[in-house]
Amino acid sequence: MKNIHKRFGGVVALRGVDFTVGDNEVIGLIGDNGAGKSTLQKILSGLYPPTEGEIFVKGEKIDPNNYSVRQAHEMGIETVFQEKALGQKQALWRNIFLGRQPTTKFGYLDVEEAKSETDRIMKQFLGFTGEGVSPDSTVSTLSGGERQGIAIGRAMYFEADLIILDEPTNALSVKEIGKVLDFIREVKRQGKSCVYISHTIAHIYEVSDRFVILDKGKVADRREKGELTEQELIDELTHHATRPETEERSP
């Protein structure tokens, strides 16, 4: 992504961001609240176009006005959100296949297929033991970690090349967070790429190859993992976060 700008009415969320994800690379995207991380992620995943700037996927230039979530999916970009990933009142199988349902004739759902594949995803990718949770369970009956698992399982099932996770570990127990981190390692091991957005530096540091620090809509710094320790990363972030607003405006 090159020179990305995004304005919401009067609010400028991104002001000229260059952002690249390499092959088989895990990038930790960090920054203070309101820095623009989610905005960048939403542009990348096709939810809305940038106000200005260019997007390239696998070397191919994208027409931002024609870029959509569907197209992002087709190009292998999947996003996993903490809260918004799933319809709470719907069965798991509907959630897994939303927008990409197996159908028979005239757009009718192949419910058997969707349920058995959901069962397979849950058992194979996610290690659900099958107790209490089934493809027919509604999302609202699942724990936070399980919900995250379903969203992640969905991305894995559809063989994404780039998986974007926006604060996937919010409100999860230590054990559940471990599962999510394992998944990110698994993504890397399978030769795929990942953008991991979080406020928990310890987790980011553990699994990322590179860090991109956003600050007030701009890239404040880029670092390789080898260059600095976890503590140095935290210090740098604190430095940006506590910098007064006025300094940003001066040339």
Binding site: S45, G46, L47, S68, V69, R70, H73, T79, F81, K84, A85, L86, G87, Q88, K89, Q90, R94, F97, L98, G99, Q101, L109
Partner: peptide, 17 residues
């Protein structure tokens, strides 16, 4: 499915295209 998810959580629906 589109109807169910639009009513359940429109953001989810949009995010799945």
């Amino acid at each position: 499915d589109h109807i169910l998810f639009s009513g359940d959580n429109p953001e989810t629906a949009e995010m799945m295209g």
